[in-house]
Amino acid sequence: MPRILVLYYSTYGHIEQMAAAVAAGARETGATVDVKRVPETAPEDVARAGHFKLDQAAPVATVADLEAYDAIIVGTPTRYGRMSSQMASFLDQTGGLWMRGALNGKVGAAFTSTASQHGGQETTLFSVITNLLHLGLVVVGLPYSFQGQLKLDEVTGGSPYGATTIAAGDGSRQPTENELAGARFQGRHVAAIASKLFD
């Protein structure tokens, strides 16, 4: 079975929850799944003053970790319609892997959160996907076979480019069951594709 890394950055815990759901979905297929987070780059006093969630259980990843996996699923909140600086900083350090083609042919995917429905979910996903393509990964999205992204009876995240959630401007909204279902679906889907490529 494939080895899958769910690699994320989460300021307030929304992406942390989505990462857990992505991992749970991937594990349903029998895949080996690790969940790791990228380092916090904000000074600790700034993070504490901003009420960042600093007590996350996932271990901190290193760039060298990436090569060990068959699939990498990247989660980050949006920052002005693009990935967070913490995730960008981490991915900016992968030049050695890129130069060696170390990630060529592996499976990649992305998930995100925004404050509002139209706060840049798809552009943030594409900001991650662009990096994945440059690194040589085969990108997998969230197909419309996950029917939850077509719901009109509730406010919900979800995009064919990856699972998403909406956090509200003050972070008070938590991922809904439909959004977590999308994340689990994406985890299963990535694992299934990776299994076809690497079994």
Score class of each variant (00 low, 15 high):
residue 1 M to I: 07
residue 1 M to V: 09
residue 3 R to P: 00
residue 4 I to E: 01
residue 5 L to N: 02
residue 5 L to D: 01
residue 6 V to F: 11
residue 8 Y to I: 12
residue 10 S to C: 05
residue 11 T to M: 13
residue 13 G to C: 08
residue 15 I to L: 09
residue 15 I to Y: 02
residue 16 E to D: 14
residue 16 E to R: 13
residue 18 M to G: 02
residue 18 M to S: 04
residue 19 A to T: 12
residue 21 A to K: 08
residue 22 V to K: 07
residue 23 A to P: 06
residue 29 T to A: 10
residue 30 G to H: 00
residue 31 A to H: 01
residue 32 T to I: 06
residue 33 V to R: 00
residue 35 V to L: 03
residue 35 V to D: 06
residue 38 V to A: 06
residue 39 P to S: 03
residue 45 D to V: 10
residue 46 V to A: 09
residue 49 A to Y: 10
residue 49 A to M: 13
residue 50 G to W: 14
residue 51 H to R: 15
residue 52 F to L: 15
residue 53 K to R: 14
residue 55 D to K: 06
residue 55 D to S: 07
residue 57 A to H: 02
residue 59 P to C: 02
residue 61 A to Q: 06
residue 61 A to D: 03
residue 64 A to K: 10
residue 64 A to C: 04
residue 65 D to F: 13
residue 67 E to H: 09
residue 68 A to P: 06
residue 70 D to L: 01
residue 71 A to F: 05
residue 72 I to G: 01
residue 72 I to P: 02
residue 74 V to Y: 08
residue 77 P to E: 03
residue 77 P to W: 07
residue 79 R to S: 14
residue 80 Y to Q: 11
residue 81 G to Q: 11
residue 83 M to R: 04
residue 83 M to K: 04
residue 84 S to D: 10
residue 86 Q to W: 05
residue 87 M to Y: 01
residue 88 A to C: 02
residue 88 A to K: 12
residue 88 A to S: 09
residue 89 S to C: 03
residue 89 S to F: 09
residue 90 F to E: 06
residue 91 L to I: 15
residue 97 L to D: 02
residue 98 W to E: 06
residue 100 R to L: 08
residue 102 A to G: 05
residue 103 L to S: 05
residue 104 N to M: 13
residue 105 G to C: 06
residue 107 V to N: 00
residue 108 G to V: 06
residue 110 A to F: 00
residue 110 A to C: 00
residue 112 T to I: 08
residue 113 S to H: 04
residue 114 T to M: 10
residue 114 T to F: 12
residue 115 A to C: 10
residue 116 S to T: 15
residue 117 Q to T: 09
residue 119 G to I: 00
residue 119 G to K: 02
residue 124 T to K: 08
residue 125 L to K: 03
residue 130 T to D: 15
residue 130 T to Y: 11
residue 134 H to S: 05
residue 134 H to R: 11
residue 136 G to D: 08
residue 137 L to C: 12
residue 145 S to C: 04
residue 147 Q to K: 15
residue 148 G to M: 12
residue 149 Q to F: 09
residue 150 L to G: 11
residue 153 D to I: 13
residue 153 D to L: 13
residue 154 E to V: 14
residue 155 V to A: 10
residue 163 A to I: 02
residue 163 A to T: 04
residue 164 T to N: 03
residue 164 T to E: 03
residue 165 T to K: 04
residue 168 A to S: 13
residue 170 D to S: 12
residue 171 G to A: 07
residue 172 S to I: 07
residue 173 R to L: 00
residue 173 R to W: 00
residue 174 Q to K: 15
residue 174 Q to D: 08
residue 174 Q to E: 14
residue 177 E to Q: 12
residue 178 N to M: 09
residue 179 E to I: 15
residue 179 E to Q: 14
residue 183 A to G: 05
residue 183 A to M: 05
residue 184 R to L: 09
residue 185 F to R: 04
residue 187 G to M: 10
residue 188 R to K: 14
residue 190 V to H: 05
residue 190 V to T: 08
residue 191 A to H: 02
residue 191 A to S: 13
residue 198 F to P: 05
residue 198 F to N: 07
